[in-house]
Design a protein around this nucleic acid. Structure first.
Lengths: 191, 191
DNA sequence: CACAGGTGGAACGTTTGTGTTCCAATGAGA
DNA sequence: TCTCATTGGAACACAAACGTTCCACCTGTG
């Protein structure tokens, strides 16, 4: 089952490299339950594996975002909830993309990342037009903060600081409304 | 000037390792403008350098947090603004601590990190008692989200997505009040 | 049974980074 | 000027990871 082996290697590599970006091919092979030779059979060099994994991870992230229909004509909260829910299981892949920065010198990968983030930026822009998002905020900042919140949530789950079922509500709630009470917010805006 | 050289190596190492955690000692030495031999003179092994850098970074972060007086009896927004302002220049060090995770297996370092995060958690708890922060949010989540926002801001500055002078207001504003308009928030809470 | 595809393991050469030693050069201070 | 401390550079041995090759072993299929 060549295809299954390739998938197992990619999945394991995402998990291992996401936690320790300097892991050796032997580490990955062992974690995947295959021989180092088999890894080399599917990915000639380490660089090939990294690139393939980056492309695969981006593919999955993009698919998750698309499947969450960020362009749907619905309240922003519903969209954010769906995207966050779809992205949380991809914590390993996102971690690899974020930490294993060795890969980002390839132009096609950067290009691909823009394909992923553009729909999210479009959603923010649309929400600003409909008055759901403060119009004075840079679009990129809103997207960055959302991604950062998802990262923080997945780390919190991994470390046991927050419960998995609380993650999405926390992300959605604090991203949209902040951590302040309405009282605190009102008091601050009056001052 | 032995002391100055040591500082230069630590500063450069934080910058280099923060961006590429697998950088070689030769890379660091070159970036610091010193010979590789000199690096080995101050830090016998690579591990020693990593530990010294981790301790030094934690020291700086802790000092920045302490200097921002997180226990002051003031509105939360003022405290958050001071802490964020103090933490932003330490982006390299924080990045190293976050990415160069090779170090976190040392118990004294983990202990040290708790020393840093505890005052922040205390601040959140106090703000929950005074009604400034929603009492239903896990304290750890509020702190994690704040740190994540500072990270996102420093990345945004490095990539030119947001202006340096906008960073602190963005962090403070969106962390406390979220990205929604008051209208959107009210509409959502009515539903 | 014979066979082919995928696999694991052993072995080997090569590269890269590390840690060490030795020596010459530089520079500040007595 | 002499001296001592610090440094840079060269050279070396050592370890780890990489990439390659070859061979034996399964396992399903004809």
């Amino acid at each position: 089952m060549s295809d299954g082996t390739r998938r197992a290697i990619l999945d394991t590599a995402a998990a291992v490299l996401g936690r320790h970006s300097g892991a050796s091919l032997a580490d990955i092979a062992t974690a995947a339950g295959v021989g180092r030779t088999t890894v080399h059979r599917h990915f000639a060099t380490r660089t090939d594996l990294l690139h393939a994994l980056a492309m695969d991870s981006l593919e999955r992230v993009e698919q998750a975002v698309t499947a969450a229909r960020p362009d749907a004509d619905e309240p922003l909260a519903a969209i954010v909830e769906r995207v966050a829910t779809g992205l949380l299981p991809l914590a390993d892949e996102m971690h690899f993309l974020g930490a294993g920065a060795t890969v980002w010198d390839l132009p096609d990968l950067v290009e691909r990342w823009y394909d992923v983030s553009r729909p999210l930026e479009d959603t923010v822009r649309r929400a600003q037009r409909t008055g759901e998002v403060r119009p004075d905020l840079p679009v990129a900042w809103v997207v960055d903060l959302f991604v950062a919140a998802v990262f923080a949530a997945s780390d919190g789950i991994a470390d046991g600081r927050i419960a998995r079922r609380d993650a999405v509500p926390l992300v959605v709630g604090t991203l949209l409304d902040g951590v302040s009470t309405a009282t605190g917010s009102a008091a601050r805006s009056r001052s």
